[in-house]
Simulated assay, not measured.
Amino acid sequence: MNTRDVQVRMCEIAVSTREDARILRATLGSCVGIGLLWRARGACGLAHCLLPQPVGKARSTQAERQGQDAKYVVDALPALISLMGAQGAPEGEIEAVLAGGANMMHHRTTIHEPIGELNVRMAQQLLTHARVRVIHTDVGGECGRQLTIDCGQQNYAVRRFSRPG
């Protein structure tokens, strides 16, 4: 990797522009990666979300509410849009790519649905509510993925990989 490559780790958000030409990457299992491309302005961003929303007594931290953390999908999407300066973007101009949300455990619990499915569902609901057009979805199943957003070229790629053994 070179200095243009940015590894977006769990609970992180990264943004870039066509001029910065950074390549944003997230390696995902049950986490969901939300990539946004605003081609008209040459801006893009990537959020690597661990959970759909705070549960029970858990609350978003000050850092999460100020857009510096992507632990929860409900906090990450608005923060990503804000960091890209896209709050007033015309409807349909921002495009989204979703990846991840896999079921990385072989067993299902009776307590709740697999967390990957919950993450994807929350991301899809929020994107619909924000009127962001989803142009590509590669989610679910039992394989991991790497979501790459090339800000210089204003494109994306999703690579699948299987769990060893």
Rank of each mutant, 00 (worst) to 15 (best):
Q68D: 08
V15S: 02
V134K: 04
G56W: 06
R131T: 06
L51M: 04
T17W: 00
D5N: 10
V8Q: 08
V132W: 15
I23R: 12
A14H: 06
I111E: 15
N103T: 09
Q154M: 15
E12F: 09
G101W: 11
P52Q: 02
K57Y: 13
M104V: 14
V120W: 09
G29Q: 07
G116V: 05
R121Q: 08
A102N: 00
L83A: 10
G33V: 00
M105T: 13
V74F: 02
I149V: 05
V8T: 01
E19G: 06
E113D: 09
E91N: 12
W38T: 00
P114D: 03
E19V: 08
Q53W: 10
R121L: 05
L83P: 00
D69E: 04
G100D: 03
R160I: 04
I81E: 08
F161Q: 03
V158I: 15
R131Q: 09
R145S: 13
A47Q: 07
C31Y: 11
Q68A: 06
A130N: 11
C11F: 09
V74G: 05
R133N: 12
E117Q: 09
T27S: 13
R160T: 10
I13P: 08
E93C: 03
A26P: 00
T110V: 11
E19D: 12
A79M: 01
H48P: 03
P114Q: 00
V134Q: 08
I111H: 14
A43T: 07
H48I: 01
H112Q: 11
M105W: 15
V158Y: 03
G101H: 12
Q124M: 13
R163A: 14
C11G: 02
R39N: 14
G35Q: 02
L83E: 11
H136C: 13
A70I: 05
M104S: 14
A21H: 06
Q7T: 04
G67Y: 02
A102F: 14
G67P: 04
A89H: 08
Y72E: 02
R9A: 10
T3N: 10
A99L: 10
V134Y: 04
L37I: 08
I23P: 04
D138S: 14
T109W: 14
I94H: 04
K71S: 01
I115T: 03
Q68T: 03
Q53N: 07
R65F: 06
H107A: 14
I149T: 00
G140C: 13
G56E: 08
I81T: 06
I111F: 15
S30C: 14
G100Y: 04
I94Y: 10
N155G: 02
T148C: 10
V120G: 02
P52R: 01
A123K: 10
A14E: 08
R108D: 08
A157L: 13
W38F: 12
Q154H: 12
V32A: 08
Q146Y: 05
S60P: 03
G165D: 14
G45I: 00
R131C: 06
N119V: 04
P54M: 01
S82Y: 10
N103Y: 07
A79L: 08
G85P: 11
V132G: 13
T148S: 05
D138K: 12
A86N: 02
G165M: 07
Q146C: 09
G140W: 15
G29D: 10
T148K: 15
I135M: 11
R9C: 11
G165S: 14
V6D: 01
C31E: 01
W38C: 00
Y72I: 11
A40R: 14
A130C: 09
N2E: 12
C44E: 00
